[in-house]
């Protein structure tokens, strides 16, 4: 990651909390379990006599397990953010890499949200609203709750909008 930083940056890109990996893992387990159930039912109902019988029942859990084991670590490794005095930058992804910058003066309003899973694993999500149609909402998940509140207060001081 260091090679991607501009030399002039004093503030480094920060990672999010490791607890976020657990949140992702639980979500993936839930998603793939549901998919497996649907696949198994469809398998029994429709595919018994076709050559691909049994594929959903056995294929889905294999892919699901691979996803649950591999994906959270990869997402966590690629999710970073940086808060300077002028902007908030959120960087995520590698295959589909998105680097979003929101100038603090353009923020419309900010939420800090915590779903039940996030509460269990001790993380929170920062939701930044802008006026643009694209990126009207920029989310930064997996933050420590105190850090999220701190960022929200810092941003609030800088907000100023110039719509008539």
């Amino acid at each position: 990651m260091a090679s991607q930083l501009e030399p002039a940056d004093e503030i480094a890109l920060e990672p999010v909390e490791p607890g976020y990996k657990s949140v992702l893992r639980v979500r993936l387990v839930m998603f793939w379990s549901v998919l497996w159930a649907i696949g198994a039912v469809a398998d029994q109902a429709f595919l018994k006599l076709t050559p691909i019988a049994g594929l959903p029942t056995f294929g889905v859990p294999i892919i699901g397990m691979a996803a649950v084991v591999v994906a959270p670590q990869r997402v966590y490794r690629r999710l970073h953010f940086r808060l300077t005095e002028r902007m908030l930058q959120v960087v995520r992804g590698w295959l589909f890499h998105v680097d979003t910058v929101v100038p603090l003066v353009r923020v419309q309003h900010i939420d800090v949200t915590r779903g039940p899973l996030e509460k269990i694993f001790g993380v929170a999500t920062l939701v930044v609203h802008t006026a643009g149609t694209h990126n009207s909402v920029v989310t930064l998940p997996g933050l420590a709750p105190e850090r999220a509140a701190q960022i929200r207060d810092i941003i609030r001081e800088h907000v100023r909008t110039d719509f008539a």
Partner: peptide
């Protein structure tokens, strides 16, 4: 300009390019 995205994917990375997407109100 309300926000700026710098986006890449595995294809554009092979060519060393990315694309910029601007968030603008309305439209």
């Amino acid at each position: 300009i309300q926000s700026v995205d710098l986006r890449e994917n595995f294809i554009t990375r092979a060519f060393g390019v990315s694309w910029l997407q601007f968030g603008v109100a309305g439209g």
